[in-house]
Design a protein around this nucleic acid. Structure first.
Lengths: 107, 107
DNA sequence: TTAGAAAGTTCAGACTAGCGATATAATTCT
DNA sequence: AGAATTATATCGCTAGTCTGAACTTTCTAA
């Protein structure tokens, strides 16, 4: 049985190299419930759980919930990177930005 | 500065001139439950309900859910960088990401 | 002022979230 | 192969979701 929500969670989890146990721990959940989200179709998962899982996986809750959103692991990775980048030290950000300018010239 | 879920829903509902019944109808819910969300702070409302309510009220589910998120005035430079980065060649993105990992100062 | 409408409030009850425990199968190591 | 790790699957349980209907308060027009 394949569901949009379950597939997104599984794909993002694998992309980050997390086990069920690891994701459960990070998202303050349980292995059995994460598994059920991925493989069964719990009709009413709580906004809180979905939100925490989304945060750990670096996407928005809206993206996980939205039935019509397609899986874009690469975009998800980009967003995760951006979240990390945004919280960095301004000096470091500057360095990265300069490097991006150099590398992105021929684009 | 973040408003609890109930207050956000009530404020947005009133701002749109909706009654409990009207919002319930639009969000495929019941007025009694909308009322409980506004006044009783149920600990685990479903992602589905929150998502539908958010859509009707013109906000994201993440905004309704996230208790701690302050409305950040987004750094224009950061967003500009992200837009540029997002459209780059995957190999270049990889390079930048690796550098960011090296320079990352959180943890 | 007051009848009726409209809005808000309350609650019983069917159904479910989500956890821990447990058992077994697949995978991935030595 | 044997051991360790991970994934699959089910069960019982407490606490919570969410609705329909009934009830109460507030608004409004005559």
């Amino acid at each position: 049985m394949s569901t949009p929500l379950g597939d997104k969670i599984r794909d993002l989890r694998k992309a980050k190299g997390y086990t069920l146990d690891k994701l459960a721990e990070l998202a303050d959940s349980s292995k059995s419930y994460i598994w059920e989200l991925e493989n069964k179709n719990p009709p009413r998962p709580s906004a809180d759980k979905i939100s925490k899982i989304a945060a750990v996986l670096g996407v928005t809750a809206d993206y996980l919930i939205d039935q019509t959103a397609t899986i874009k692991v690469e975009d998800a990775a980009d967003n995760a990177f951006f979240r990390k980048y945004r919280d960095m030290d301004p000096a470091v950000k500057d360095k990265i930005r300069r490097m991006a300018d150099l590398l992105g010239d021929d684009e």
